[in-house]
Computed example of a mutant assay.
Amino acid sequence: MQRGTLKAWFLVHKWTSLVCTLFLLLLCITGLPLVFWEEISHLTGADPEVAPAAPGAQRANVDDLVKKALAQYPGDVPLFFGWDDHSPSVYVNTGARPDTPPPEMHTAILHEYTGDVLPAAQFNEGVMYFLYRLHTDVFVGLPGMLFLGAMALLFVVAIVSGLVLYGPFMRKLPFGTLRTGRSRRLAWLDLHNVLGIVTLAWALVVGLTGAINTLAQPLESAWQDHQLREFAAQYESRPKPTSFASLDAAIARARAAEPAMKPAFVSFPGTGYSGNHHYGIFMHGNTPLTERLYRPVLIDVETGEVTAQPRLPAYMTVLLLSQPLHFGDYGGLPLKVLWGLLDVLTIVVLVSGLYLWLKRGSTDARVAEIERAGLVGNGEVTSP
């Protein structure tokens, strides 16, 4: 590698790291508790234990459950109905109008079998929701998401450029070497390099999935505008329905239409997920992977009949798979613990990078340092 090329890679790594580091620190610090959101909710009582169903008990009628939820918030309309795969409970999101945004929604949790309303905190309140908003959009909506997505992409560039520099710098040193006897800055540099390479694969995965996740709103809007709007155009001449068919019966028809899948959630008309004339019953699989992949079954709210089973486009599948992967939500608690440890190590990498910048010398001096560590002959650094 020529000295000029090495210097160029060093500048790329330096400036991409500097621009994104503070924001990446924010994302790593807020992301750490979010990895354990479910466990923290159980410990704090925000997500209390739900009594198991009695042997032989039958599920309560879904229409009755929705009515009980609406009684908790007079004047609201139903928006979403969903199931908890890990307990016999369901949730109902309600709001003042069909297009109520998530921060303004109300949520009722009910026992799926007894129909009892369960005590539970609102999903859009409390410390964890504050951290979630700080992590995803810094409280400014889509512009904040896209900005953080740009920072995630810069982080990926910083990782790749750091990997390019790692070979020349560490080639003559055993892996894991920490040269503590020469200078504090050199010890920090070795720590930065070692932890950076240890967390490399994880940081790339989290950085790329984080960038993808920030596109959730545009991707969902594209899907709604193209696939769902094209389907809904068939109903434009019809007035909005004033009476709805039984949701309980509609869910039964969706189960029959997709017997290998189970319902995940239902979108009511007007929410943007199923047009103005349909229930959107989103089915998913039974494995940690397929439960993230949805297949909508559209049910006419007036007749209760199945009218379409559109497949999600590829970009929505990528989004749905990247969301849980970003938080390590595929392999239960062991994977979450691994995600948490790697998150902490990445925080150390970012802090050590800031320290190295504060104790920086000139760019030429830094490049010469890399050359001395490895491999220069006649002005060239040999390729690793």
Rank of each mutant, 00 (worst) to 15 (best):
A203P: 12
V205E: 06
V205S: 15
G207S: 10
L208Q: 10
L208E: 07
T209S: 15
N213L: 09
N213V: 02
N213A: 09
T214V: 10
T214M: 15
L215I: 02
Q217R: 13
Q217V: 15
P218G: 14
L219G: 13
L219P: 13
E220N: 14
A222L: 15
W223Q: 04
D225L: 09
Q227E: 08
Q227R: 15
R229I: 14
E230R: 13
E230T: 13
E230P: 12
F231D: 01
F231E: 04
F231K: 03
A232Y: 03
A233H: 13
Q234V: 04
E236N: 09
E236Y: 12
S237R: 05
R238G: 14
R238Y: 04
R238K: 13
R238C: 08
R238D: 09
P239N: 11
P239A: 15
P239W: 00
K240C: 04
P241T: 08
T242P: 08
T242F: 03
T242K: 11
S243Y: 02
S243E: 11
S243H: 10
A249I: 03
A250C: 10
A250W: 00
A252K: 11
R253E: 09
R253P: 06
A254M: 11
R255G: 06
A256T: 09
A256F: 12
A256N: 11
A256S: 11
E258W: 13
P259H: 10
P259Y: 14
P259G: 13
P259R: 15
A260K: 15
A260V: 09
M261H: 12
K262C: 10
K262W: 01
A264P: 01
A264T: 12
F265N: 09
V266I: 14
S267V: 05
S267K: 06
P269V: 10
G270H: 12
T271N: 07
G272A: 07
Y273W: 10
Y273D: 04
S274Q: 01
S274V: 12
G275H: 02
G275S: 05
G275C: 02
H277E: 05
H278F: 10
H278L: 07
Y279W: 11
Y279R: 06
Y279F: 12
I281T: 02
F282A: 02
F282V: 04
F282N: 10
F282R: 04
F282M: 04
M283V: 02
H284C: 06
T287V: 00
T287I: 04
L289F: 15
E291F: 09
R292Q: 13
R292I: 00
R292M: 01
L293G: 03
L293M: 11
R295L: 03
V297G: 00
V297W: 06
L298E: 02
I299H: 05
D300T: 08
E302L: 07
T303G: 14
G304I: 00
E305I: 00
E305P: 05
V306H: 05
T307Y: 09
A308I: 01
Q309M: 08
P310N: 08
L312T: 05
A314N: 04
A314E: 05
Y315D: 13
Y315K: 07
Y315N: 05
M316R: 09
T317M: 08
V318Q: 03
L319K: 06
L319C: 05
L319Y: 02
L320D: 08
L320E: 11
L321R: 05
L321P: 12
S322Y: 03
Q323W: 11
P324D: 04
P324H: 08
P324A: 03
P324V: 01
F327L: 13
F327H: 08
D329W: 06
Y330L: 10
G332Q: 11
G332E: 04
